[in-house]
Amino acid sequence: MPKLRFAERDLEIAGGATVLETLEAAGIDVPNSCRAGACQSCLMQAVAGEVPEEARRGVSPAKRELGHFLACVCRPTADLEVARVGGSEAIAATIAAIRRCPGDVLEVRLRGAERLDYRGGQFITLLRDDGLARPYSLASVGGAAELELHVRHFADGAMSGWLARAAPGVEVAIRGPYGECFYVADDLERPLLLVGTGTGLAPLYGIVREALAAGHRGPITLLHGARRAADLYHRDELAALAAAHDNLEVVASALDATGDDDMTATPIDALALERAAAADRGALRVYLCGAPALVNGLRRRLFIAGVPLRSILADAFLPAATGGA
């Protein structure tokens, strides 16, 4: 049976167990959230031995070179020595403000992380001082003085419940950025279609503002959906953005929309397919963020409808594996 070496301890890897499970069984805490190889909260570093390719999927080329891998999906087949990712990588930040928005959303602003080199739409891992970790998308524009996160507040959420009560000035840490869901200014004329549910708006809000700042001229459609009209947040901000830019159209969709509240009851996936059908599908770039069922289902349907697979950038928000986020 292969052995796992960590901090000068040799641990037995039970049949088929992951590095994360093995460390936890030995009482070693590793930050983690999705436990499905997506959120990168559990990123670790291999010191010696081979990491299965499965555990390196989605890890950036630069991090691969450093031996970084995802502990939650790493099932070693031979001896492996691992370490925590260098402590210098975590960046200290301070909670600057927390605003309550409709839909149980907290707009969290962080200060002090100016050296984080990121693009709006990427995500970070937010770390509390006891090691609790959760991934959140960046709604702010790269280079902005404050990071902006949209956090869905769950009553039993370990991180979101804590954030809802946290006061400005509280210190946290962040790691990242991760992900490839961001604006690329390779063609300022191409149509953009941004589709998000709930806090899936966070990455889209960063992406659309970066696109506009880059002088994007092609038509941009942003679709934001929620079950209840009352849960749609940032409506004023989006309306102001659309009013200031002729090429931006924002459509709000809620299943209980009545039509006189400036939103539609047409489901967001139907709207997205309609807009994609009317666009130049060869040039179109699509961003899908939020509920996994919507993101994955719509990716497939848009692809079948003729959008190239590489033109569909998706970020499915997986829930934390234990308790709410």
């Binding site: 692809f303 079948i304 697979l309």
Partner: peptide, 24 residues
């Protein structure tokens, strides 16, 4: 691949085998 994969996903004889797979 786009052409081929799109045909596969659109074909009811075989597309059920591709449900829930990571498209990339």
């Amino acid at each position: 691949v786009d052409l081929f994969y799109r045909k596969v996903l659109s074909d009811d004889r075989v597309n059920e085998f591709f449900d829930g797979v990571d498209m990339e």
